[in-house]
Amino acid sequence: MDSSEAVTTHDSTVDDWTRALAESTGSPGGGAGTGVMLAIAASLTSMVAGYSEKEDDGGRAASIRERAQQLRREALKLADDDSTASRSFGAAFRLEPGPERDGAIRNASVEAAKASAVLGERAIEAIDDLAWLADKGNPALVADVVVAFGALRAAVAGARTNVSFDLGSLRSAGTSLEDVREQHPDLWANVERLTAALDRIDGLAARIDDRAAPTDSI
């Protein structure tokens, strides 16, 4: 595939998409990778939930599986949306210094932060279902749950970092961080929620690590 072509998660093989990610173009970039990690976490959640349905009389596993399958599709779309935002972000910084460049950076930075914030919120919403599977899902799939937690953590960490970095990029257009916090309180608060989510995921994964990796205790 020509590296100059736009690739999407829906129209590319894994090989094509990761080859495009490996190029120094930024589209796809880390934000799109965050979306793919969320899709992987959702896919593993769906798999474990499917294996857990027979052990769950209340129907929770089936509901988790349905939500996870929907999240997988949404996460891939968000990954592609981020690739589009990345192109605008890069184009803004390539403009000649001046008011037009400053305005383009402001718009591109905020839009990129919003795209990553949506991804982060979807990742946060997925924690409860994976936590339920960690406690009540099929115990034979506990290693897959830990892998899912790892992918979900990567998605949360990626979203947190990208929102924070994009907000920080507003300084290139002459805006102070204090002004950024006042002008974009929801995005600022999103970073704090994502930071807390990282701590929660770490705690949940640590709680089942002895079951997933028993040789570590020897």
Rank of each mutant, 00 (worst) to 15 (best):
D81H: 07
G58R: 10
A68V: 04
A112E: 01
L198N: 06
D135A: 15
E55T: 08
A49N: 06
D82G: 09
A197F: 12
A123Y: 03
G50R: 07
N190H: 11
A108L: 09
P97C: 11
A159F: 08
A49Q: 08
L170P: 01
V48P: 10
G29E: 08
Q69P: 00
H184V: 04
S12T: 00
D128P: 07
W132G: 13
R106L: 05
A49S: 07
V118K: 14
I218T: 04
V48W: 05
R67L: 09
G29N: 13
G203A: 09
P214N: 09
G26K: 12
A42R: 10
D57Y: 03
P97N: 12
G137F: 05
A62M: 10
E100K: 12
A112D: 01
G137V: 09
I127G: 08
K114C: 07
V118G: 11
G59C: 10
W132L: 12
D128E: 14
G90F: 03
G203S: 04
I208G: 05
R193K: 14
V118H: 07
V7Y: 04
D11T: 11
R171W: 02
A189S: 08
R200T: 08
D80L: 15
V142Y: 02
G59R: 03
A6P: 05
E23R: 12
A104S: 09
S164P: 03
E5A: 14
V14A: 13
R106W: 00
G120Q: 05
G90V: 06
V180S: 06
D11Q: 03
